[in-house]
Amino acid sequence: MELRYGSNPHQSASAELGPISVRAGSPSYINLLDAVTGWQLVREAGEAFGVPAAASYKHVSPAGAALGDSVTDAYRRARDADPKSSYGDFVAVSQPVDAELADVLRRVVSDGIIAPGYEPGVVEVLAAKKRGTYLVLEADPDFEPPADEVREMYGVRLTQQRDELPLPRTLPDDVLLGMIVARYTQSNTVVMLKDRMTIGIGAGQQSRVDCTRLAGEKAAVWAQRAGVPLTDVSMVSDGALPFADNVEEAARYGVTHIAEPGGSIRSPEIATACADHGITWTPTAVRLFRH
């Protein structure tokens, strides 16, 4: 199908939607990137934990992601992680959208949603948003993606195996959720979590300590807004921590558990720094870069 435009309004674009159907609105190139990436995150998180999962996406990275008692609870928690960044978000949820969530979405600034289904009357409520331009997409929950992913840029065609490596289910909930979030976030990435929701995500930075600092600053804002002490925070890094300055930064923001791939020549320094700050260190041996 023809899209509204590509990455920018002066670029034309088209797409083959495959397992996704348009229930209302007209997607742009970035809408679909956010939708497809967000859907993968919530699908994996929902299957891993057996409860509703939600993500609030902006520019192909989540502003927030969370688990909840209901699909509405999950989205509220995901959006509350970083409401400033979630302004004008693309929503992804792991379960069908009900009237309660539609009512929440009706009252917030958002560009669209992807879900595995919609209860009767919900699409009509959502389609009325943004003067009738709100984008409503439905994902086929039974679709199994191809084993390989293909990308073509500037005449160069790249093919790689889809990242479907099973993540360790023996890890604490916040660490496992953080690894799932990192898998679908632009690298470099650091995710801070508490009580099965993200409270700070530092994404797309060239320096990993900048990711840690950014995630920590967002976590501090979340704690201030929620009126709670910033304690018992888990931190997940998509790549190995190269220097102990990441641990120093993490300790400033109440981090008590750090999970990262390890395997770096400085990993012994990371382990020592964690021990010095009373932080549990888990080398996962799993790198989760996404570009």
Score class of each variant (00 low, 15 high):
residue 116 P to C: 00
residue 136 V to N: 05
residue 176 L to C: 13
residue 130 K to S: 10
residue 259 A to R: 09
residue 167 L to Q: 13
residue 107 R to P: 00
residue 21 S to Y: 08
residue 36 V to L: 03
residue 291 H to K: 14
residue 166 P to T: 15
residue 54 A to P: 00
residue 90 F to V: 05
residue 173 D to V: 13
residue 178 G to Y: 05
residue 272 T to G: 09
residue 251 A to R: 12
residue 141 P to S: 10
residue 194 K to Q: 09
residue 284 T to K: 11
residue 227 G to I: 06
residue 162 R to S: 03
residue 93 V to L: 05
residue 277 H to Q: 13
residue 226 A to V: 11
residue 6 G to F: 03
residue 13 A to C: 06
residue 154 Y to P: 07
residue 72 T to R: 13
residue 190 V to M: 13
residue 285 A to E: 10
residue 93 V to P: 01
residue 71 V to W: 01
residue 246 N to Y: 09
residue 181 V to R: 03
residue 212 T to A: 10
residue 184 Y to R: 11
residue 143 F to C: 00
residue 174 D to N: 05
residue 206 Q to N: 14
residue 174 D to G: 04
residue 55 A to P: 00
residue 137 L to A: 05
residue 59 H to G: 03
residue 236 V to S: 02
residue 277 H to P: 03
residue 75 Y to C: 13
residue 143 F to I: 00
residue 215 A to F: 04
residue 219 A to H: 00
residue 268 P to K: 14
residue 13 A to T: 06
residue 76 R to F: 11
residue 190 V to K: 00
residue 99 A to F: 07
residue 103 D to N: 15
residue 290 R to E: 04
residue 221 V to R: 08
residue 178 G to V: 09
residue 122 V to W: 00
residue 224 Q to T: 14
residue 9 P to C: 05
residue 93 V to S: 05
residue 47 E to F: 08
residue 85 S to K: 09
residue 285 A to H: 11
residue 72 T to N: 09
residue 211 C to Q: 03
residue 200 G to W: 01
residue 238 D to S: 14
residue 278 G to Y: 09
residue 72 T to V: 05
residue 207 S to D: 13
residue 123 V to R: 07
residue 262 G to I: 02
residue 76 R to S: 08
residue 167 L to N: 11
residue 246 N to E: 12
residue 114 I to L: 06
residue 135 L to T: 08
residue 191 V to E: 07
residue 25 G to R: 07
residue 158 L to Q: 13
residue 77 R to T: 01
residue 216 G to T: 09
residue 183 R to E: 09
residue 3 L to I: 01
residue 192 M to F: 08
residue 148 D to F: 05
residue 97 V to E: 01
residue 108 V to D: 10
residue 248 E to T: 11
residue 148 D to H: 02
residue 94 S to W: 03
residue 15 A to C: 12
residue 215 A to V: 10
residue 129 K to W: 02
residue 63 A to Y: 02
residue 220 A to V: 04
residue 6 G to A: 10
residue 127 A to I: 04
residue 200 G to E: 07
residue 40 Q to V: 13
residue 2 E to F: 08
residue 289 F to Y: 04
residue 76 R to Q: 10
residue 266 R to W: 14
residue 253 Y to H: 11
residue 26 S to W: 15
